[in-house]
Design a protein around this nucleic acid. Structure first.
Lengths: 340, 340
DNA sequence: CTGAAAGCGCTTACAG
DNA sequence: CTGAAAGCGCTTACAG
């Protein structure tokens, strides 16, 4: 009886030791073979790989995280996974880190600060190797708990002079101002804004209002939509028109709502852009495909995620803390189309 | 010197032992206090909580996973996170398991079987407590590796007589047949189908073709779109019309593409539904808001996720394996609207 | 109600 | 190129 087969029941998952026994080597060497195959003799490697296949061995990542102090997790916090424009950012991030083996652990905080706080606590417990957040974090408790851990943190979609660690975004304020100047240039004297209460929409409104004021135009009518849907855009537009029938230019904080505004105009027989000009933000496909096509602010949704991923990889590789405090402005572009 | 402060540098994350020392108790009791506060004396509990707050202690979940053999992870595999209808399913799932503390680890396999295989390997290493997959898995290697682990697995969005473990879906075949019968009832004799090559779209096409054949109608023209976008729907519709100008009814495998078909008709001045009837699947908001509104198959996107979550919780709670092999059909509904 | 001991399955130094 | 020892930070039984 030279062969010492593992005595554990077959229903249990094999451990590294089981592989080692089957391959006639040690757990150490199996571990090395799996992570740095070049450092193991070819023949040993072959025996180990055969054993891995035979047993269907998959390393227990909880154990390796614990031992190596690297979790392999990239935590991603988004306001909502149901929004395709945020998923562009996630896609950019995933593409950027595809080579490194980091898993994206995606948490959805439903636009709620309270849920975000809980999510951060939960994620910190998983010891993420890095954290990416859609939106800048303004809650001091959350900022502190993210700072406390050593992992790089990238905020996105906004600019802030004081990032937790790094931030990659664009100026929502300038985007709003750019739309206002565009509407003014199109001869619109009575403008409105439709958007929610989170910080990015507020910054767009602030820029929009500032540029109107600078031109001596009246302050914008504003409406807060029920959510970010087409229907909410329709309804908000209807309320604005009821309140201020002379409105001739509307900036919606997102394209989806702007499409609602446009469809509502078409339903009511309101000429766009003859009577009312409409602009959105996001350059989503639906806006591009509408007839007339929607004027919009194109934002670097994919690029922000991709750049965030690159920053993280650089930091993880070089242990280079010099990037900390970095603020990267990726800009935006006004796409003038049929609705203005 | 009675007070023995922890000697570790403050930059390192506190461990349970640090909390125990500060609270004047043992690691065991801290662990218990955090998980089953009712089993710890009120006074001890208060001291522990104060210590937790003072140190900003967050348990290392890699260590607890390893020790408890529960990861707290619910692995979710989706074809793409960029599709809002799949995120409905994820939302349903998240809502169902919100009370239990399970984190959703979402993996995106980009509609690629190869990427899905890798993803499954990676996820299995994280020892998920449960797995939910959008789509049935037909790859035998993947099925085997999911079966090997003890965790419950729920497939969704399809029905299959032989699930890996449990499956919650609807009949894509019947959905296709229902649309065909509806178009026939509307007097359409020359139908077409636009949809991709994955199993769900194929089942819809099979049902669509079968119902046409049963009625003695000619087999459908079919077009495979470049992707699932509005633009792809437009282009596929254009190709169909070029090939078969007498087409009078088109079923698109998803609403987004169907909207493309509708917009293309409007651009070309083709009367819908007078000359061509159009139907989609998904009951997405954009289809509802179009003018005319899109006829569609409403599918239980949210409900499938929610039910999957309930099945998982039941299994996790009762260790009840009787649900295994269960096939749950949540059905669908034809919503007849303006385009047919 | 509380705690000392053992162990979860890996990896990190270190030695050879 | 390979391996024995120690330890990552928790929880599980068990004892009291």
């Amino acid at each position: 009886m030279n062969e010492s087969a593992p005595l554990r029941p077959l229903t249990e998952r094999p451990r590294i030791e089981d592989v080692a026994i089957l391959a006639g080597t040690s757990a150490m060497t199996v571990s090395r073979a799996l992570r740095q195959p070049g450092k193991v003799a070819a023949e040993t490697l072959a025996r180990i790989m055969a054993a891995v296949d035979a047993l269907g061995y998959v390393p227990n990542l909880s154990a390796s995280s614990l031992a190596s102090r690297r979790s392999g997790i990239l935590a991603v916090l988004v306001p909502t996974i149901g929004n395709s424009i945020f998923s562009e950012t996630v896609r950019g991030l995933a593409d950027a880190v595809a080579a490194a083996d980091l898993h994206l652990l995606i948490g959805d905080f439903g636009y709620s600060d309270d849920k975000r706080r809980k999510l951060v606590r939960a994620l910190v417990g998983r010891q993420p190797d890095a954290v990416v957040i859609v939106g800048a974090v303004h809650d001091e408790a959350v900022r502190a708990s993210l700072r406390r851990q050593a992992a790089p943190v990238v905020e996105t979609w906004e600019l802030s002079p004081d990032p937790i660690d790094m931030i990659v975004g664009f100026s929502n304020f300038e985007a709003g101002a750019t739309v206002a100047r565009h509407l003014l240039a199109r001869g619109r004297g009575r403008c409105a804004f439709v958007g929610g209460l989170e910080s990015r929409a507020e910054a767009r409104l602030a820029g929009f209002a500032a540029a109107l004021a600078a031109a001596g135009a009246p302050p914008p009518e504003t409406e807060v939509p029920a959510d970010l849907s087409i229907a909410a855009g329709r309804e908000a537009f209807g309320r604005i028109l009821a309140r201020a029938p002379d409105i001739d230019g509307v900036f919606f904080a997102t394209d989806v709502m702007a499409v609602g505004g446009l469809l509502e105009c078409q339903r009511r027989g309101i000429d766009v852009p003859g009577r009312v000009a409409i602009a959105g933000l996001g350059n989503l496909e639906i806006g591009r495909q509408m007839q007339p096509a929607l004027t919009t602010i194109e934002i670097p949704a994919y690029a922000m995620g991709h750049r965030a991923g690159e920053l993280i990889l650089a930091r993880l590789a070089k242990e280079d803390p010099s990037a900390s405090g970095r603020v990267i402005d990726l800009g935006f572009a006004l796409l003038t189309r049929g609705t203005t």
